[in-house]
Nucleic acid binder design. Structure first.
Lengths: 410, 410
DNA sequence: CCGCTTTGTTCGTGGTGGATACAAAGCCAG
DNA sequence: CTGGCTTTGTATCCACCACGAACAAAGCGG
């Protein structure tokens, strides 16, 4: 009889999730590092790595890469399996959408843009989106373990409804997660089990930018990461605490747009005056620079273009940028006082403002935050392409990271 | 030979901490409930309860209490051991201090107030404080497992320094935790091991109020608890996330005092105008009511007294209260938009304002927070006596809750 | 080629908690 | 009062996971 004893492959379940997360985020390039990061013995790390390899999630390469230079036996290299399973990720925005297949490590395997008519309702849009994603799955033949969606709206939890879908002809309160999940089922997209139809995840795009940057971009290693970004209109925020998105008790945390940054500023629909939302978004910049803002769509692109090309030459543009930097700094200082992050990353127009005059922004923050504390808070630019998309993928990967054994067994 | 097999008492280490926390917070009155809450089998829960009893932390009473009414075998009652070990807790404030011995469950076993001269430096004050606590320990003969201190100041982590000790003649940046620990060592106060000198914990008093209320008071069961409270001057905030204090990356989170709540308000030392800090504290109330504020110490008491006695009779007092309620509501709405708590509790003057006109406060919050969400956020009054003291004790109990086996073995 | 260092692997062990069967302690119906 | 019924506590066995120790492997340098 063959022995029925537990095989080595079945060992190491408990540390499986943390180990996969370390490889996924690039913090465990070798098995030796994995051993140290997990705080386990070499034996355990070996079993865990072998199991993840058997699940088809990572590859273990025993050949030394570049002769690390240190003495002793070279450690096996760990990396995400480039041919492993993927998740379906999608981002919807005012101008259309983009669907993608994303592997572990935030690698975009395949991606395709799409357009939708402005008047399309959520079901129409998401059918298109999921159709595009399913097309990519067919073309590539990859195994799919889940699906995530980024929307330009606050998403209420646990309902999964989009409360204020900006610039989309969606009814406020549309149950996007439910619709997304239904579209996935209709398209036959598989989920964590590998077979059952996928449960869709959906979240606000800025939240997902923060998540992606935390794991694969400018936020790596931060414990309390604050992300602030603009789209075409308005300002969004997100906070990652201890590696997890902080969405608050109903998913609506970090609505940072209505901090007062100019007591004499213009009125805001929220009832206040001089809110961050209306004082530091692309529209505010274009108006402050004395330009004709033009149509709603493309506001962000035009603002970025103006800042890039004429900041150095046109005093009106420079003054407008400085005005926005000052107001943004005030808002960020307020957030520093409340949240005390150890890193801030900026996206959209705010990122461009940071790059235009980082010193000015940092000094405003330092000046208006208590005890000069934030003088020490690094303020960085988002660095990932398609971070919303990658963040949506992170959402879908999460069940696999939490329990690789049951979520990824094939 | 006696068998060297593992005894039952040595089992169940992993679930020990969560189990103690459940009994400590009153969420596990019986062993059956403990089983359900822990999500383990009855066997495991039994082993865990037996171990905690053997450690002298809880008592297991097999006699049915009041005939629960339901059928089936009555479950053993679990409770904190009233004769068990204690921690030394102390709170320093403008008028003096209070030292206490606090058992599990937030029970104050013994307490004594103390006075200090206004000019006393931290070492003098804490020597007095620890002396008073050590006296209580001698009188009662209780075993001491740690010590915690509440101070009316932001406390920077990980340094443990008091940045802005209000109304105390302490130098900003005083290393209170270090001084506290030294005083404990000099007084021979024992710590978690039961023998080694205790490491002192110190934190901001509002943070500790939030922690205490979360575990034993109005915040029980909340997942994201926001606490806002006034002392004599200024406004403090605190946030408890998933049962843990959120102090931010450097301990300085929830400095909520400088949210703008009145664009036309008075200037604040922070550089802004109309900050929550200067618009809703006791001094602001007394001035708004047209009263002579008088000396710094006792401001809170006089404000509370005025509100209690003349709110119903003096229109000036009522108008002042309404003004402060409106401003407080604006500030709380801002915090709701950023933090999305599922409960808010108010202390000090803010608590009294809530009790004066809860409806007005709730409607202001609902009006100025996005999507009417906060209309559903309960706003409650702090309900514990000496919550700062109890919170300081929670800080000291934490190592025991995290690992009862090593922290409490006698 | 032989030490030296570091890494991977095999094998045994221990502690943790699950499953099961059984005993105990209450209520209720007869 | 006695025999179901229900729920809780307990004893025993066992699966699992990670640790420790010993050994093998793979590089470097003399």
């Amino acid at each position: 009889m063959t022995p029925t004893r537990t095989t080595k492959l079945e060992r190491g379940r408990g540390a499986l999730g943390p180990a996969l997360e370390l490889v996924h985020t690039g913090r465990a390039p070798t098995r030796a590092v994995l051993t140290a990061e997990l705080g386990v013995t070499r034996a355990t790390a070996g079993a865990v790595a072998a199991e993840l390899e058997a699940l088809g999630l990572i590859t273990v390469d025993s050949r030394p890469a570049v002769a690390a230079g240190s003495q002793g036996r070279p450690s096996h290299r760990l990396s995400v399996d480039p041919g492993g399973p993927v998740v379906l990720a999608a981002q919807v925005h005012a101008d259309g959408f983009r669907a993608a297949l994303v592997g572990l490590g935030g690698r975009i395997v395949a991606t395709v843009p799409g357009a939708v008519t402005v008047e399309a309702d959520p079901a129409q849009v998401l059918t298109e989106v999921v159709g595009a994603g399913a097309g990519l799955l067919r073309e590539t033949g990859r195994r799919c373990l889940g699906a995530g969606l980024a929307v330009p709206s606050a998403v209420a939890e646990p309902e999964g409804t989009a409360l204020n879908p900006l610039h989309l002809a969606w009814p406020p309160g549309a149950p996007v997660r439910e619709i997304f999940t239904r579209c996935l089922a209709e398209a036959g997209v598989t989920g964590p089990s590998g077979e059952a139809p996928a449960t869709g995840f959906a979240a606000n795009d800025v939240n997902l930018i923060a998540l992606a940057e935390h794991r694969h971009g400018a936020g790596r290693g931060a414990r309390d990461l604050l992300c602030v970004a603009t789209g075409h209109r308005g300002v969004g925020g997100a906070l990652v605490l201890d590696g997890r998105l902080h969405t608050g008790s109903s998913g609506l945390a970090l609505e940072v747009g209505h901090l007062t940054v100019d007591p004499d500023g213009r009125p805001c629909h929220c009832g206040g005056r001089g809110c961050l939302d209306v004082e530091t978004d692309p529209l505010a910049f274009l108006e402050a620079a004395g330009r004709e803002p033009g149509p709603e769509t493309g506001l962000l692109k035009r603002a970025l273009e103006l800042l890039r090309t004429e900041y150095a030459t046109d005093p009106a543009v420079r003054d407008a940028a400085h005005l926005l930097i000052d107001r943004l700094g005030l808002g960020l200082a307020g957030l520093v006082n409340i949240l005390d992050p150890d890193r801030i990353i900026l996206g959209g127009l705010h990122r461009a403002l940071l790059e235009a005059d980082a010193e000015r922004l940092r000094s405003v923050i330092a000046e208006r935050s208590l005890w000069g504390r934030s003088g020490k808070v690094p303020v960085l630019a988002c660095e990932l392409d398609y971070s919303g998309l990658v963040g949506a993928a992170e959402l879908a990967w999460q069940p696999v990271l939490d329990d690789p054994m049951t979520a990824a067994r094939g």
